[in-house]
């Protein structure tokens, strides 16, 4: 049986470590600076500068989140287990009355909390500006965006923890984390595009939307782009992605599955 108290002890330590070594504040500042710059300059190529509607601001921030957040999550979590093993502290931890599942979940929860706080602080300022600019209605949309960004961060944190369990040492783990980032952020979409072009769009209509669900960054993109009709039309994606698959709850569920699956694999290996 799981003892939640043990998960809390590990999580609290991980979170406190990140607060103490100023990781949370550093990442928050990075997010704030990038988010402010993108929110203000996102429409510069159309000759406009300054805050626009919440939908367009979110659409501009989506790319930032997709590039930056997975990278930060992977950096945060890649040595969660392998680091303990390499330092020699894992045996001592496991000699305590704690199960491997509790240790894994404690690490994941603590790191998730640190990442979530950084994300909320980092994107919070732009959110506050949007609310002052567009009223409380903007808050609903923006809160959804931040929540999905946190989910995306947790998905990549889960992948990082999995890499950390499977890797033999920290060097290999960092290599694995970079490979995961390349795969999901750069390679996957390019490969999909290439396949579409080479097949002359043969599998496009039936398979394409489902293939997008195999990449959590695409799920995040769809979740946020499809949340507003004008953005959907602006990006021209309405014809590619069927409305039945763009249900936010369904996409949220897919993100959740993306979070649980790597953690389960990590537990299976760690056990």
């Amino acid at each position: 049986m799981i003892e939640f108290g043990q998960i809390r002890v590990i999580a609290r330590k991980e979170f406190r470590d990140r607060i103490r070594n100023r990781w949370v504040i550093a990442v928050s500042v990075i997010f704030t600076l990038f988010a402010l710059a993108i929110a203000y300059l996102g429409a510069a190529q159309q000759g406009e500068v300054g805050l626009r509607s919440v939908e367009f601001t979110i659409a501009s921030l989506v790319s930032l989140v997709i590039y930056l957040l997975p990278l930060i999550a992977l950096i945060l979590g890649y040595d969660a287990i392998v680091g303990e093993r390499e330092r020699g502290s894992l045996d001592l931890l496991l000699s305590m009355p704690i199960t491997r599942l509790e240790l894994l979940l404690g690490k994941f929860c603590g790191l998730s909390a640190a990442l979530s706080v950084s994300t909320l602080l980092g994107f919070g300022l732009v959110g506050a500006l949007l609310v002052s600019h567009g009223g409380v209605a903007a808050l609903f949309h923006y809160a959804g965006f931040m929540l999905s960004a946190i989910l995306l961060g947790m998905v990549f944190l889960s992948l990082a923890v999995m890499v950390s369990v499977f890797a033999k040492d920290r060097a290999r783990a960092s290599g694995g984390a970079i490979a995961v980032w390349f795969l999901f952020v750069l390679v996957f979409d390019l490969a999909l595009l290439g396949a579409l072009v080479f097949s002359g769009g043969a599998f496009g209509e039936q398979l394409f939307p489902f293939l997008l669900l195999l990449n959590p960054t695409d799920v995040f993109r769809i979740l946020n782009i499809f949340s507003a009709d004008d953005i959907r039309a602006f990006y021209g994606l309405a014809t590619v992605f069927p409305a039945s698959l763009s249900n936010p709850w369904l996409l949220g569920g897919v993100m959740l599955a993306w979070m649980i699956a790597p953690l389960s694999l990590a537990y299976w290996r760690f056990k």
Partner: peptide, 11 residues
């Protein structure tokens, strides 16, 4: 349990 070459958290 006291392991050989015990390692703690430096921070």
């Amino acid at each position: 349990y006291l392991p050989e070459n015990v390692v703690f958290y430096d921070n």
